[in-house]
Structures are given as structure tokens and as C-alpha cells.
Simulated scan of single mutants.
Amino acid sequence: MTKFREMKAMAKQRLGARTGNRRLAAAGRTESAEARLLETKDKIKAAARKIRREYRSAR
């Protein structure tokens, strides 16, 4: 899902740049940043789950 968001944001950004639509390009940059943030959130959650699993199995 995150990769789809990032691709959509890149398309908006490029389309805005080619047509001279600054708002569309800015929206693409914003959505791209949001997609990267969500991906980072997912990685952090996965790392926390892994640590939690290792801690529980060590008990």
C-alpha cells in the first residue's frame, strides 16, 4: 500500500512539474513525504514486534 502511495505522489509531482501546476507538484511532494513517513512507521512497528517476541521467548 505504501509503495502505491509513493508512486501516486511521484506521478502528481511529475505531472505538476510538466504542466507548470505548482500546487499539484507541491501536493505530490507532500504525499511523497507522507508515504515515506508511513513506511518508517511500519518499520518501527515491525522492529518493536520483533523485540517483544524475543523478550517473551527469553523469559
Rank of each mutant, 00 (worst) to 15 (best):
M1Q: 09
M1E: 06
T2Q: 13
K3G: 08
K3N: 10
F4I: 03
F4M: 08
E6M: 15
E6C: 04
A9K: 00
A9Y: 00
A9M: 00
A11C: 08
A11M: 14
A11N: 10
Q13M: 09
Q13D: 01
Q13T: 00
R14Y: 01
R14E: 03
R14W: 00
L15Q: 11
L15V: 13
G16V: 01
A17S: 12
A17V: 05
A17D: 11
A17N: 09
R18D: 09
R18T: 09
R18C: 04
G20E: 09
G20H: 10
G20K: 15
N21W: 07
R22A: 15
R23V: 05
R23C: 04
R23I: 05
L24I: 06
L24Y: 06
L24V: 07
A25Q: 15
A26S: 11
A26V: 03
A26E: 12
A27L: 06
A27M: 04
G28R: 03
G28C: 05
G28M: 02
G28I: 00
R29S: 04
R29L: 03
T30C: 01
T30M: 00
E31N: 08
S32Q: 02
A33D: 04
A33H: 03
A33Y: 02
E34F: 00
A35C: 07
A35F: 00
R36P: 01
E39N: 12
E39L: 07
T40P: 02
K41N: 14
K43I: 05
I44C: 07
K50F: 04
I51P: 01
I51M: 08
R52H: 10
R53E: 15
R53Q: 15
R53W: 02
R53C: 06
E54L: 15
E54V: 12
E54H: 08
Y55W: 07
R56S: 10
S57H: 10
A58G: 09
A58K: 13
R59I: 11
R59G: 15
